[in-house]
Design a protein around this nucleic acid. Structure first.
Length: 456
RNA sequence: GUGGUUGUAGCUCAGUUGGUUAGAGCGCUAGAUUGUGGUUCUAGAGGUCGCCGGUUCGACCCCGGUCAGCCACCCCA
């Protein structure tokens, strides 16, 4: 009986070319992280559900992949829960582990577990896959890779400033035109308080976040549907419609907050960030203080980041923010953290669309040795040792019985630029015939000459 | 999780109101070419029409279900 080979929904294989390209993105990001002093961390694919649940909002909890207990787990499960056929009641009985949903929560767990061994502020980066039971779409997968960096143990806005510098560096190196949208949850809270509708904080955020998708009119309708009065909505719209530079809008907002005794903390934080980065001259990254940015994981409490590529309709390519109490849930209060996360596959998709900043054609095997018959193999092995010792990627075509035409064809199909032919003539003369596939030119060379030629 | 849409050869796609042996291009294999690939020519292989069930004398085609891709919503990298 044959099973039909298939992949689970929302997962993919990566062939050689894709892996090389993905590694390029990964190396670019990791290189930036390391230059900023972040050190690596890896955590398990699975975490206890007690670690994961409740961190991502009700939506997020539904997207968690749960792992069934081993063994005859139904026998020990609570009978009444099972009899109700209520998944929510049964799940805790039959599953205690889940696949991680992001890298930030496992990081927070790690920080708390290792708090006595970590020197604060603690900075780490982490590049690993995460899983979400979401419905797949373009640029949206059930298994995807995140490239995170986080700093915990400092309230300083310099952390935010550093992440903006990292954004600048990474997108410049990748050649992606990027726009960083930045806001602060505290400012959003202030806005909700200003219109005296703080009890609607979360739905207000989801509504105004849709600004660029459904427009001002659509947002207005959503807000009214929440039960806000026309005056409240109008007041909110005035804030969202503020014009001018980042600083001008921030100052205007500060005035309004001050006149109504609203906590200015968020404003101050944003002001600090914006003034630092204005001195850094980050020309190739557009930074936009955007009051309509209201998304992000539910644990964010301060700064929130989102990066979009304006030339590509693929959603956000990076997100992040500050979380004041993520470690508090695990028993370590008063440790503020801030982090960002790049979505590897979305960056990949963008670069596939617009082209890559480097040429990957020279990354594979550079020369393949083609002995005519078995007598050529010892000579080929000897040559290969020397060629490889010189740092050249080289391989041997192992089957001598096939015709030379097929051997050369192998080189051609693999995209190997050079074929080194070893026949009885060459062996007798102590030479190698080196054929350049692209031109068809070939020349008889000594081994030293061949190495020199391949290094050119 | 909700709605829509697509699913035919390795790939991109045709397929007559349901009627006998389901086609094309590219790719693949072999030969022309027993020390040489890419061009050309010749021949060939490859499909339980996503899967399961139903209607029918008969289903790639109609109906139901299911799986997967894509799109919109929700949310997000």
């Amino acid at each position: 009986m044959n099973v039909k080979p298939a992949l689970p929904k929302g997962t993919r294989d990566f062939n050689a070319e894709q892996v090389v390209k993905r590694n390029f993105i990964r190396d670019t990001i990791v290189g930036a992280y390391e230059r900023f002093g972040f050190e690596p961390l890896e955590t398990p694919a699975m975490e206890l559900l007690s670690t994961l649940t409740g961190k991502y909002g009700t939506e997020g909890d539904q997207l968690l992949f749960r792992i069934l207990k081993s063994g005859d787990f139904l026998r020990s499960a609570d009978a009444t829960a099972l009899s109700k056929k209520d998944a929510r009641a049964v799940l805790p009985e039959i599953a205690e582990k889940g696949l991680r949903y992001d890298l930030t929560v496992p990081f927070a767990r790690y920080v708390v577990m290792n708090q006595h061994n970590l020197t604060m502020p603690f900075r780490r980066y982490q590049v690993q896959p995460v899983w979400r039971a979401d419905r797949p779409q373009k640029g949206r997968y059930q298994e995807f890779w995140q490239c995170d960096a986080d700093v915990v143990g400092t309230n300083s806005m310099l952390s935010e400033v550093e992440f903006i510098q990292i954004y600048h560096e990474v997108f410049q190196k990748l050649g992606i035109k990027a726009k960083l949208r930045i806001n602060n949850r505290k400012i959003l809270h202030g806005m909700a308080s200003l219109i005296k509708a703080h009890e609607f904080f979360v739905p207000i955020c989801t509504a105004i976040d849709k600004m660029d998708k459904i427009g001002a009119e659509g947002v207005r309708e959503e807000l009214l549907k929440l039960g806000l009065s026309t005056e409240q909505v109008t007041q909110l719209e005035q804030l969202l419609a503020l014009e001018g530079s980042n600083m001008m809008r921030l100052n205007e907002l500060a005035d309004r907050f001050a006149s109504t005794w609203i906590d200015p903390k968020g404003i101050e934080e944003m002001w600090e960030i914006l003034s630092y980065i204005s001195q850094l001259g980050l020309e190739s990254l557009e930074v936009q203080f955007d009051l309509s940015l209201a998304r992000g994981l539910s644990y964010y409490t301060g700064t929130i980041f989102e990066v979009v590529a304006p030339d590509h309709a693929i959603g956000s390519i990076s997100g992040g923010g500050r979380y004041d109490d993520l470690t508090g849930i695990f028993g370590l209060p008063d440790v503020s953290g801030v982090g960002i996360s790049f979505g590897l596959e979305r960056l990949f998709d963008i670069l596939e669309e617009q082209g890559w900043p480097v040429d990957f054609s020279r990354t594979g095997t550079r020369v393949v040795f083609l002995p005519f018959e078995a007598q050529g193999i010892p000579r080929a092995l000897e040559c290969l040792q020397q060629v490889r010792a010189a740092g050249i990627k080289a391989e041997l075509f192992p089957d001598v019985d096939v015709k030379m035409g097929k051997k050369v064809k192998y080189a051609d199909k693999r995209g190997i630029p050079f074929a080194a032919v070893l026949g009885s003539d060459e062996i007798a003369a102590g030479t190698i015939t080196l054929k350049e596939l692209a031109t068809g030119n070939q020349e008889r060379l000594s081994l030293d000459e061949l190495v020199k030629r391949l290094l050119a």
